[in-house]
């Protein structure tokens, strides 16, 4: 069949279709970014199911077999997917071993938050290189996409210009989606990105009387600014940093440590004191503790995926951020907690 696919275009005098680069990623969100940058030239597949906890994926032989055929392997890094190295080791694919050009760590160069000052298992399942949920801030995906583009260019230098153009287009789309097309046109994406990263965007827009030009996700997420939200795990720090939420406490007592009854009651007391509207957690966590908090406080439970492909409509990164904002704003603007 493969020979026929090659021969028929040759006989008809049409250009021979070039085989696509096989890119294997750990997470669906990385596959989505790879498709944005690689376009038609790549065939990207994620190993983790988008509904499952990315910390705990079984390095099954079927995943190793997929990695065996990869031209490029993309992982997030920061010790989120410790299972990825087991998959790579089992794949027997020399191209994607650590340090090879075909092994991309997408979080390289992204500023990490919550870097632990002290490393000890006493603090739970801490990540020594900082909180790894970097893709929950849309601005970080611009750097992640740049790392993926560099990886694609390394294994396929003939199409460097195409990857660069796709990367530029993706970064512009992120700017427009985050700040709104009108503001990006007036000020420029680079300037806005820098102001947002410095935490001076709101102040600067007020100085320049440009508040009304702000659109996109930031405008839609305006009701979230300053609102306290309880989350299950320390996954949402990057999202909170970008959209102005406050995260006063987690349901987990420490990362990876299930909540004790005493800790749950402390969370209830804090939620009542701070009038918390929303309990936010990823779909892969058990809902028992969140249901308890909701029953005790009357807050709303917001259960969302954090990976692309976890729900029918979430086909790319843009749809994923849309979902987070829609659900959280819906909860925050709904009736106040009854208790």
């Amino acid at each position: 069949m493969n020979i026929l696919c090659f021969l028929i275009p040759v006989l008809l005098g049409s250009p021979v279709p070039q085989p696509k680069l096989r890119v294997v990623t750990t997470l669906g969100v990385l596959a989505s970014l790879t498709r944005e940058v690689g376009g038609e030239r790549v065939d990207a597949e994620a190993l983790a199911n988008p509904q499952q906890d990315p910390h705990f994926v079984q390095p099954r032989p079927t995943l190793m077999e997929k990695a065996r055929a990869a031209d490029l392997f993309v992982e997030l890094g920061m010790q989120l997917e410790l299972w990825a190295q087991k998959v790579v080791e089992g794949s027997g694919n020399p191209r994607i071993q650590p340090g090879q050009p075909a092994r991309v760590v997408a979080s390289t160069g992204v500023t990490a938050l919550e870097l632990p000052r002290e490393l000890s298992r006493e603090w739970g399942d801490v990540h020594p290189y900082g909180n790894p949920h970097v893709w929950l801030d849309p601005l970080n995906t611009k750097d992640m996409a740049a790392n993926i583009a560099a990886g694609l260019e390394a294994v396929d230098p003939a199409h460097k210009d195409e990857y660069e153009a796709n990367l530029k287009r993706f970064q512009e789309r992120i700017d427009e989606a985050l700040f709104g097309a009108e503001l990006v046109k007036q000020v420029g994406g680079k300037m806005l990105t820098r102001l947002a990263r410095q935490g001076r965007l709101t102040e600067w827009l007020a100085q320049k009387q440009l508040e009304k030009s702000l659109g996109g996700w930031l405008a839609r997420a305006a009701p979230l600014a300053g609102r306290p939200v309880v989350t299950y795990h320390k996954s949402w720090i990057y999202f909170a940093e970008r959209f102005g939420l406050k995260l006063p406490i987690e349901i987990e007592e420490k990362p990876g440590i299930p909540p004790s009854a005493r800790h749950r009651d402390a969370v209830v007391a804090l939620m009542q004191a701070q009038k918390v509207h929303s309990v936010l957690q990823e779909v892969f966590y058990d809902e028992g503790a969140a249901n308890y908090l909701v029953a005790e406080t009357g807050a709303h439970k917001v259960s969302v995926p954090i990976d692309v492909g976890a729900e029918a409509g979430v086909k790319d990164y843009f749809a994923l951020v849309d979902l987070w904002i829609d659900k959280l704003v819906g909860s925050e603007t709904a009736a106040a907690p009854a208790k």
Binding site: N49, Q52, F56, Q58, V283, F284, D286, E287
Partner: peptide, 9 residues
């Protein structure tokens, strides 16, 4: 059997 949703439970 280890479901994707709440598979750690």
């Amino acid at each position: 059997w280890k479901p994707y949703i709440a598979g750690e439970w």
